[in-house]
Write a protein that binds this DNA or RNA. Structure first.
Lengths: 219, 219
DNA sequence: GCTGCTTTTTTAGCATAGGTAAAATTCTGG
DNA sequence: CCAGAATTTTACCTATGCTAAAAAAGCAGC
């Protein structure tokens, strides 16, 4: 019988997956036999998966990832080689929602990336509607203080405080102060969209800057 | 024939996966027929997957996720309900590497979470060894300036600047100044470990604070 | 260099499940 | 109420996810 080949994918990710599994296993100094035994699979199958000759099912991949103590996403999403530098002086501000909040994007957007970060500016008195969605997020208070409500429980965050939570929990914010607050927001889901909002403030002196998520805002 | 059941998983994630696929599809206002056609699958299969009666292969899930325009990880890893609030006054500092760098953890650690954030303090003159690993990361300069080298290309980041890149690219930092710099680091891989390093500085007046990654550092 | 053991690869094979087409059922807008 | 759209269900099939075991390669000790 001819050597079996997995179904060809446009991006040939099955091979990437196998390479990454092998890399992680070797970094953890484990044998295939160990991984197989602990994942409830056979050593031959592990070999085939690592060499890209077989594609594991989801449950098998989950078992293998558990043995390697890595999130399954690490094997499925591999960011490309993009880099985004965002200069303070060149950030573009966007307006969201009803136009009261503005934000500046920090994260770049390259293939496979899931990390998102923006700096949010919420004006005095602003309240957001309670929402929930996929992913997780973290607030870090750059300036000012804010009330955060998660699943009905309220907390005040002050400058230097942070909060990390699963976005599926219903959450809302309220700027109970009389000053604009600035929050560094980081999350795993792009809730701010890509250029979906109008830029409202262009700090670039020439007024023609491109958005930072274009292939890096290079010096 | 009895109704087919997917293999039971301890966390029954196949059902979670189907629920999430249906939720995302409805949020995008798409029919199963549309998803099936664009993913190269049958509508009956999409129905079974969404109802947890069949488990898609990795390539099928990838196709479905592409149609829904969501990262595949969104369907595979769902954070639990943890929340971590980290008060500025209660952050525990850790020492890493040769003891020269310290950091304070911001992110909590709850089931399924992949987002990590710390505040790094690099002393004057400190150079890190070039490394590469899985995931992606973002630096935001809270204070001071630093030279970052990625794949041999150097850049200086100043206060307020940020940089987002795939961690697989070889990267190193050098604090070329004569002051300690503070960086808010955010990433998708836990390169700082969980309590793997010694706490070196306890800001809690009682000196007995628990680490913030324990079930939230509640007020 | 040889040997024995460990680790990985390869082979042959199979049970099942990933996935389909089409029919049946339910939903929904007019 | 009805027609069409959308979803579910059924019957079925074959490709493949995965195995056991043999073969090959790697490696440490002598």
């Amino acid at each position: 019988m001819l050597k079996k080949q997995p179904q060809a994918q446009p991006e040939d990710t099955a091979l990437d997956l196998g390479e990454q599994l092998r890399r992680c296993r070797k970094e953890a100094k484990l044998t295939m036999q160990y991984v197989a035994d602990n994942a409830g699979l056979s050593v031959g199958f592990i070999s085939q998966v690592e060499r890209g000759l077989a594609a594991p099912s989801l449950s098998s991949l989950r078992s293998i990832a558990r043995v390697l103590e890595r999130p399954i996403s690490e094997f499925l999403e591999q960011p490309g080689s993009g880099t985004g530098t965002t200069r303070k002086s060149r950030r573009v501000s966007y307006r969201v929602a009803d136009g009261s909040i503005s934000y500046e994007r920090l994260s770049a957007n390259f293939p496979g990336s899931t990390l998102r970060a923006v700096i949010l500016h919420e004006p005095p008195g602003h309240r957001s509607e309670p929402i929930s969605h996929e992913g997780e997020e973290l607030f870090y208070m750059l300036q000012g203080e804010i009330t955060v409500e998660i699943d009905g429980e309220r907390k005040i965050l002050r400058q230097g405080d942070s909060m990390h939570f699963a976005s599926r929990r219903k959450h809302a914010t309220w700027n109970h102060t009389d000053q604009t607050v600035s929050i560094l927001w980081s999350g795993t889901l792009d809730v701010f969209g890509e250029d979906a909002n109008d830029p409202i403030q262009k700090n670039n002196a020439q007024g023609t800057s491109t958005h930072s998520e274009k292939k890096g805002d290079e010096e």
